[in-house]
Structures are given as structure tokens and as C-alpha cells.
């Protein structure tokens, strides 16, 4: 079998199913011998790092039409992103920018253009720790899977909460991600922010990735608060307790001081040898506090 200088095999079979049903059937037949592949950028990194062995079979899902396309209905404020949409598509789509601006900013901050031209939103989501996830979580995302039957829909939040321990989803094929824009009440404005803090701008797991969306009235009273945190090996999630605390409060120095302490207390990131948990908590709290401050300035 051919191998590169690092000894990574380069001769798996590559299958090219034309439909989601065919891809799913192949996966059932091949079992752990077969791996779905889209852009392949994360898989390649894992193979090179020895974190995963190159499988005997790759199931290329890139030719499945139903996985492609950005469909946004500006009137209803809903949209669907095909799992094969590249991060470059997200970065440059004016439709995405108009309806889901945090996704544009998230895409800008992931890797570099050359990788974004290959890497897909589906792959970023299925990594469980991709930096698109905090941004997606702001938009009430629903995952659409092909599971061999009539399809399965599942909230991204729910899936993330169990995906690391329950591996059954690996048998399914992610088709698309459905999003809903937050509605804007009259006499209010919406403030959104996405931030990634890391030891480098890109190409290294972030210390904290934060996404925030709040609605403010003329008194700076907060409503429809949405706050998601992730970064590094932390599986991103909404901070519902903090969201509830902020809802109905006037964003002022006292509130921002209190929310800082609340984030430090309740956010539970994963630490590593470079950045301990305590630092990540403070970095996250600082990001949230500073963005709220910007929102009311």
C-alpha cells in the first residue's frame, strides 16, 4: 500500500454516492471501515497527527446534490445551509451576511481562505468543537439528518449535549442545518458580536470563542438574550442561566459586573496544558462583559 513520508496510507477506496440514501447504505455496509468525507481537511489533520487511522474506505459526500445550497427566506427570517457548503461560501455569501451575520464573522476567523475553500460547515459542526458552533447556536439551529428512514431533525443544542458520549449519530448523514433569525420587537435594536481569543489568530484551538445576541430598548433593557461559548476542546453551548439573569435587566455597570461573576461561576470550559480552566473562565467573562458594554455605549 502506498504511504507518504509519515507512513499515512494513501490508497483507500473512494466511493462516490449520488444520493444521501446511497451514502447511508454504503456506511451501513462498510461499518467502521468506511468514513464519510467532505472537504477532508480535518480528517487529513487527524491522519497526519496519528489521532485517527486512514480508513479503508472513504465515502465522498461531495457529489450529493441535496447537501449543497444556501436557501434563505428573508421574509420569514429562516434559512437552510447544506452540509457541503464551504466555509468560504459562508464567508462571502451576502445572503448569509444579511440574515445571519455572526456566521460570516465566524467563517472569517476559521483557518485561512485556502482551507475554507475546501472545509465545509458540516465538517465544522461534526467536529463538535468547530468555531462556527457558537455562532450557529444563536440562531436556533436544527440539524437535518438522513438516517435511512424519513429523515431525522434534531436541535443542535440537544445533539451537542450528548454527541461526545453517544456515537449513534456517526452512522447518520448530516444533510443540512436550518436556522432562524431572532425576531426584532418594535422600538428595539439588536446587538450581535462574535469573538475568538487564542494564542494565535488562527490554526490553533481558541482559548474562548463567544457569540452574543441581545435586544435592547431605548432604556437599554435587555431581552431575547442569546449567549454561546466554546473554544479549545470545550463543546460549545448556550449559557441559559446567564441568559435568564440578563433578561429584563438594564445593561449598566452593575449588571455587567454581576454577569462577569456569573460567567466565571457557571461557565465550565475544558482546560489543557497551555490554558487552564480558570484563565478560560476569566477570558470568557471579560469577552461577555466588554461586548455588553459596547452594546450600550
Amino acid at each position: 500500500m502506498a504511504a507518504n513520508a509519515q507512513g499515512v496510507a494513501e490508497a483507500p477506496f473512494v466511493w462516490h454516492p449520488a444520493t444521501a440514501a446511497e451514502a447511508w447504505q454504503l456506511k451501513q455496509t462498510l461499518g467502521t471501515e468506511g468514513v464519510y468525507t467532505a472537504g477532508g481537511t480535518l480528517l487529513r489533520t487527524q491522519w497526519e497527527a496519528g489521532l485517527a487511522a486512514m480508513p479503508n474506505h472513504l465515502i465522498n459526500v461531495g457529489e450529493i446534490e441535496e447537501l449543497h445550497g444556501i436557501h434563505i427566506d428573508c421574509e420569514s427570517g429562516t434559512g437552510t445551509l447544506g452540509a457541503m457548503i464551504t466555509l468560504s461560501d459562508l464567508r462571502t455569501s451576502p445572503l448569509v451576511h444579511a440574515s445571519f451575520p455572526l456566521l460570516t464573522e465566524a467563517a472569517r476567523s476559521i483557518a485561512a481562505p485556502s482551507i475554507r475553500n475546501l472545509a465545509t460547515i458540516g465538517g465544522n459542526v461534526l467536529s463538535l468543537v468547530g468555531d462556527s458552533l457558537p455562532a450557529l447556536l444563536i440562531y436556533d439551529p436544527v440539524l437535518h439528518w438522513h438516517d435511512g428512514s424519513n429523515g431525522l431533525q434534531e436541535s443542535l443544542s440537544e445533539w451537542l449535549s450528548t454527541a461526545a458520549v453517544h456515537a449513534a449519530w456517526r452512522e447518520r448523514l448530516l444533510i443540512a442545518i436550518e436556522l432562524t433569525q431572532p425576531a426584532l420587537d418594535s422600538n428595539t435594536k439588536r446587538f450581535v458580536a462574535y469573538h475568538k481569543v487564542g494564542r494565535r489568530d488562527a490554526f490553533t484551538p481558541s482559548v474562548v470563542t463567544a457569540a452574543l445576541s441581545v435586544q435592547l430598548d431605548s432604556d437599554n433593557r435587555l431581552s431575547d438574550v442569546r449567549l454561546a461559548l466554546g473554544g479549545g476542546q470545550t463543546i460549545p453551548h448556550r449559557l441559559e442561566l446567564v441568559e435568564q439573569f440578563l433578561t429584563g435587566k438594564i445593561a449598566n455597570k452593575k449588571t455587567i459586573t454581576e454577569v462577569y461573576a456569573l460567567v466565571v461561576e457557571h461557565y465550565e470550559p475544558k482546560g489543557d496544558a497551555f490554558v487552564p480552566v480558570s484563565y478560560r473562565k476569566k477570558a470568557a467573562a471579560n469577552l461577555i462583559a466588554s461586548e455588553l458594554w459596547k452594546a450600550v455605549r
Binding site: A2, A11, F13, A18
Partner: peptide, 11 residues
């Protein structure tokens, strides 16, 4: 096997 599912293999 459908043509579209024919694998491109090392062979």
C-alpha cells in the same frame, strides 16, 4: 452496483 457508486480505487 450503480455506475455512480463505482469506487475509484488504487487498482
Amino acid at each position: 452496483m450503480k455506475d455512480s457508486m463505482k469506487p475509484l480505487s488504487r487498482l
